[in-house]
Design a protein around this nucleic acid. Structure first.
Ligand code: ZN
Ligand code: ZN
Ligand code: ZN
Ligand code: ZN
Lengths: 156, 156
DNA sequence: GAGAATTAGGTTATAATGTTGCAATTCTAC
DNA sequence: GTAGAATTGCAACATTATAACCTAATTCTC
């Protein structure tokens, strides 16, 4: 929602990094320079970013830049819930409200490319509803929507 | 649901092929031998199937077997809604109720590997709810759940 | 039916995405 | 400081998907 409208994005980045540091301290894991830089790069905008897009950017910053480096950093960030993977795009995006594991859910605008996280509470409720109806036990879920965001709907 | 329990699966396959023929006639497109065989192979069980798994099976049947052949057939079947793509698995699975375009939604059991399509009406309702709440216009959606199915929950 | 237009398939090569295995280094805890 | 764990560097490789270009089959138009 907010992510789909113009805003001070530097604030998004700063907040994301700060939260990441907090989360890492709480969980007793290390936000090393590569991991931190990968997180910043994923947060450079609200568009899902491919792993291979990060390689040259990391290289430009003097970091090692080979697929395993990037994937290890991404796996780490996924593991502790700082980013999500958008599997329909083979891409990654920063999590808006890290701190606890929660279902992956995004709306992605096909016009501007921005993505916004879906309200976790509703996802949770829907997942619970389906568990009931289908008699299954859900362990993880991912909901990916595409279409036009509020801004792009009103463009010429 | 039914797909997750033992059943006469030959019936599933026959039904799927019959429906496919109907859909293709209605839409004025051709269910060629390769396309038909790929559909049968996708329906050989209720587990999502990777494109490259199909190659040797097609070859065994005397069909041409190169990636473009399989991907073209899969693209065709996706296009007219006879199969779905499970992007978290890079795999494909037959559609339970083809005939109209509808959102992709599956529950995949992490123990037995079987997948069952989610109730389309509920997916539709949830998508509409999110459109309202977020002020966006949804064009396509995909919901992928994993966990334990009713059968596997009760195993030792 | 002949010829043009469209659609489908064959073939080769290559792009894009993601992983494995192992050695070298850095960090942590005692 | 030293042992063990975690992290990184590096090279090769595996998997998934597409591009480009051409031939064959089918349908359309006359
Ligand atoms: Zn922002
Ligand atoms: Zn999130
Ligand atoms: Zn069946
Ligand atoms: Zn379906």
């Amino acid at each position: 929602m907010a992510n789909l409208h113009p805003h001070n994005h530097d604030h998004c980045i700063r907040t994301a990094i700060q939260r990441a540091q907090t989360v890492c301290e709480q969980q007793g894991v290390r936000l090393t320079p590569v991991r931190r830089r990968v997180l910043e790069l994923v947060w450079q905008n609200h568009k899902p970013t491919g792993a291979y897009e990060l390689l040259p950017q990391l290289a430009a910053d003097g970091f090692n830049s080979a697929p395993p480096t990037v994937y290890r950093a991404l796996d780490f960030l996924l593991e502790i819930g700082l980013i999500h993977r958008i599997s329909s795009l083979n891409a990654f995006i920063g999590c808006d409200h890290p701190g606890g594991q929660h279902p992956t859910g995004f709306f992605i605008c096909t016009d501007c490319g921005n993505a916004a996280e879906l309200p976790a509470a509703r996802l949770q409720a829907f997942s619970a509803e389906l568990e009931q109806v289908m008699g299954v036990q859900v362990a993880s879920s991912s909901y990916e929507l595409t279409g036009l965001c509020g801004v792009c709907r009103l463009k010429p």
